[in-house]
Design a protein around this nucleic acid. Structure first.
Lengths: 173, 173
DNA sequence: AGCGTGTAGTTTCATTAGTAACCACTTTTC
DNA sequence: GAAAAGTGGTTACTAATGAAACTACACGCT
């Protein structure tokens, strides 16, 4: 495999952002760095503001955001795992914590005795009033320097990359 | 499995149209998904091929890739943490595992008694012959559908995003 | 020299996340 | 209607990660 690019130069770098090896030029690495940085920023904000962790605010966001639907004042954990795309165990843990905090309550599910319906309590609803705005504000801040074309492109590129991974993961390599 | 419509509107696999929630449209989430997918793919490949985990192959990659430099046949763990941008504990653990596997060896450091110089063993070097090519091949596969302009853009956008996070993380109330 | 401070490396501990086993209830089948 | 099979939810076990404490050596100072 000859990629005529290595240019093996482990130079001295003082710049904290630019880096020595070409590892920093390795796309999966760049992706990971960027993603971790963004996640850390958000986690930090939610922790400071509401003492909520990522899985928890995701549940809050989905629960509080299902407006418009008629009587659908809540969801089962199963529905939450689909909406949040998180693991069912992660959802369960988040719900347990939120319940202990009094932000959500579990109502019995008439339709299925195995599950309960998770609903926001008044207190939970009050917090949710801020949860989503904070998320959106953060997103806007992150994208402040991007024009709308660039933003679209970033989303699109990420989407395509993800699909590509799915395709590659299927044929055994 | 995923044929149910448990609650209101859990959209199907089709993108963008009317997805479950706007969580899927939330950039940090898109980033996280894409990053996790890519990382999982790579981890899987390295695990299958060499039984190496991500931190380990990063160390291997950096160690084996410092050719050209004259006598510099190795690096200290400190240098590795800089080059890999990993935590010093992560570097240490990776080195320990690699040493136990006989892929690297620790030579005493004449210049500083506290540290050792990590060098690839012949066996380690043999594996490294494949480590970097696999990484690059995977990168190429991932980017196969992107033209060079798009690739540049993706890298650039990620870079800018990361810098933006740094900026936001510092001046905060 | 001896003392204090700094740094490389290591170990320990707590937190987190993911897998698999498990229980309670539901649905299907006979 | 009872056994079998399936599903939502929960718990237990295990691996991964990062922070902080700790060891051993280095360097600067008087």
């Amino acid at each position: 495999m000859s990629r005529a690019q290595p240019s093996a130069r482990i130079a001295n770098e003082n710049d904290d952002s630019g880096d020595a090896s070409q590892l920093a030029q390795f796309l999966p690495y760049q992706l990971s760095i960027a993603s971790n940085a963004v996640s850390a920023l958000i986690a930090e904000r939610y922790r400071k503001r509401f003492a909520l962790k990522i899985p928890e605010w995701r549940v809050m966001a989905v629960l509080g955001d299902m407006v418009g639907e008629v009587g659908s004042e809540g969801m089962t954990q199963r529905a939450l795992t689909e909406s949040t795309l998180m693991d069912k165990v992660a959802v369960n843990r988040a719900c347990k914590i939120l319940e202990e905090r009094g932000l959500i309550a579990r109502a019995p599910n008439a339709a299925d005795g195995r599950s309960h319906i998770m609903v926001l309590t008044p207190e939970g609803r009050a917090i949710h009033e801020e949860v989503l705005p904070l998320a959106l504000a953060t997103e806007r801040e992150l994208l402040a320097d991007f024009d709308s074309r660039e933003e679209k492109q970033l989303r699109s590129l990420l989407e395509r990359l993800r699909h590509k991974v799915d395709a590659l993961a299927h044929n055994r390599s």
